[in-house]
Each structure stands twice: as C-alpha cells, then as structure tokens.
Simulated assay, not measured.
Amino acid sequence: MPNGISAAESEDPFAAETGMETLRFNLVEEADAYTLSRYAREQAEALGIMTFEAAAFANAISEIAMNAIVHGRGGAAEVHLTDNQRGIEAVIGDNGPGIGSLAQAFTEGHSTAGTLGLGLSAAHRACEDFSVLRNDSSGTTIALRQYLHVPTNEIDYDVVSLPAENSTYNKDIFLTQESRGDTVLVMVADLGAFKSLDHNASQILREVSISHRHSSLEELGTELQRCLGDYYDNDEVHFALLRISPFGAECHVVGNAQAACFQAEKPTGELATFTVIASDGVDLSQVTEPIVDSDAYTLASQIFNQSAVPEEDATVLVVRRFSNESR
C-alpha cells in the first residue's frame, strides 16, 4: 500500500445511512483500473449523479489508475462518499517517482514517461474536484470527486436578462456554477466598452470561476479584473458575485453592479427572504411594490419589471436559500 492511503480498516460514518462502505483496490494490472472505475461509476449513479457525469468521472479515474499501473510502479485506491455525503471520492496513490512539474503535467497533451503526466489535464476536466494530495519521490496521490447537483428545494436560482430597447445585443453576462453538491456561485457582469469583439468573455468568466472556485470572492474578483483587463476597459467592467453555501452567504461587488436582499410575502402572510444581484442597467431602489413569493424565475421577473432601465442592458439574478424549517 503506497504512502497516503491507509490500509487500516475503519468504520465509514455514512455506511449505515447510504449502504456504501469504503472499498479499497490494489492497482497491479490493467483489469484493476477497469474494476475500480466501474465500481466508482456504479456508486455515483446509485447516489443519483447523472449518467453522463458518472461516466466522465469513471473515465477520469481509469486514466489516473492506468497511469499508476503503467508509469507509477503500481499502487492502490479507495472509493467512498465525500464528507458532506453529496458526492463520490476516489483516492488513487502510486509508488512512482512523483510528477516532476505539476504545471507542465496539467498542460493539455503533456506526457512525461515515468510520471502521472499522461492524461492529467483531461482527468482534471472530467470531474468536479481534482486534488494532488501528495507528490514526492515516493509517489503521487490524487483525489477525484464528483458531486450531486444542488437540490432546488435547498437553493433555487434563476435569471432574467434582456438587451436595451431597440438593441439586439446584450453585453451583460451571467454565470451560475454549482460545487460540492451544496454550494452555488452566481455572477452578473456588464463588460461596458469592448477592446476585442472576437474574444469570448463568457469563457474567461467560467474558466476563472472554476480555477478559483474555492477562493474568497474578493480573490476571485481580483483575478477576474486582471484577466478581463486584457480585453476590456477595466473602468467599465462591472460585476457582482454571490456565493451561498451551508456556511452562509458571501457577496462581492465591483463597479456599478448591485446586490441586495428582498422579502416576498407568502400566502400564509409570512415573509421569505431572497438575494438579488443585478447589472448596472437595473435600479433596485425602484422596487417599491410588494413582491409575491414564488420560484426564483418569477421573483426575478417581478424585480426586473420594476427596476430595469429601458435604455440599458439589464440583468436580474435571484438566489433563494431554503432553511431546514421552511422545506
């Protein structure tokens, strides 16, 4: 058993509830990689992960396991639930010499004989979380994780985004991204004046938000400004970020974008609280009429109809988190 993976038997705290126990595999020959990846896929689908995502996750596991067998002098792996019970984790360790340069290993198409470089970038893209836990002269240990989607009865979010009157092109961009099966990051951006009409700003936002998904929103915002500054006038880039997780809500606003909390009246007379982020083509101070509680899209529509400035591109994105008591 390689360093970084314990051979000791331990009780799985979630086994009684889910029926899934930690299962360990020796990685000696190609058939072992197939057995490992098939088991991980079966457990992912049994948990409720979508078939396509479970298949991609299994392919990533197979790639890393094969590299451990072929280039890493063999190794071992284990598969279990993630700590929050919202996903499947596979931890794969080898007995090889380690990866010489992780930065190079994550480069598309890079392969270095005798290391885990082959397929590392592809495996990284195929699963939601990918971590190098150990990389030294005694071997490499990698963790891959795939999670469920966030249930809509826990966090509901949706958006209304339209161009200015008499315009066909909307320069506002919005992004929603789930992680760990219990966290949602949403973003609204107004990119103002273009420096390069052919550059895909949406791709920049998505790539940066993925690579910095575990950073604070302030750090994410700084990196977004740095990357967008190469293509757009930074003084005309406005965006709002909102992350909601079991640990609370975090918000970060740059420029003239907006964020605010509102209340909607339920049929029972109680008030439900939800959060809004919006582009600078929206004036949230104009929301004065009562909001009727509904799904996120209807809430966004009610806010949009009261606050959108006709002469501007306008985007309203609503996020509502349900407490345990209100489900």
Rank of each mutant, 00 (worst) to 15 (best):
E312G: 08
P2N: 11
T18R: 05
A189W: 00
V254P: 12
L162Y: 02
F194T: 15
N135K: 05
S294P: 14
S202K: 05
S62V: 00
A260P: 07
S211Y: 14
E218F: 13
A259W: 05
E11Y: 07
F322R: 14
A278I: 06
A65D: 00
V292Q: 10
Q43A: 03
E207M: 09
D190L: 02
L205C: 11
I99T: 15
A68I: 10
D83Q: 15
E223I: 05
N84D: 13
D190Y: 04
E45G: 05
E312N: 12
A15H: 14
A40G: 09
G109F: 13
D293W: 09
A7H: 08
A201S: 12
I244A: 08
Y34Q: 07
G221Y: 03
I99N: 00
V159F: 03
M187C: 13
L217C: 11
E250I: 02
H71T: 14
F130G: 03
E325A: 01
V91G: 04
P13N: 08
N26T: 14
E21C: 11
D293L: 08
S301E: 13
R321G: 01
T168Y: 12
A90H: 00
A55N: 14
T18E: 05
A300P: 15
V254Y: 04
A60D: 11
H80S: 10
I64P: 10
E21R: 07
T268S: 06
A60R: 02
E17K: 05
V188D: 08
V253L: 12
V319C: 13
C127H: 10
V319S: 01
C251F: 02
Q177H: 13
E325L: 02
N256H: 13
D129M: 08
R145V: 06
F274T: 07
D295M: 05
L197A: 14
A16G: 10
I173R: 00
D233A: 15
P97Y: 00
I88E: 01
E311H: 10
Q258R: 02
E53V: 09
R125Q: 11
G19Y: 09
I244L: 04
L228D: 15
R213I: 07
L224G: 01
G72T: 06
E9L: 15
T152D: 13
G248I: 03
Y39N: 10
Q302G: 15
I204W: 07
G255K: 02
L27D: 14
H110Y: 14
T141W: 00
Y147K: 06
G48C: 14
F239N: 13
S179Y: 08
A113V: 06
M66Q: 03
I244R: 01
I99F: 03
R320Y: 04
S202Y: 05
R320K: 07
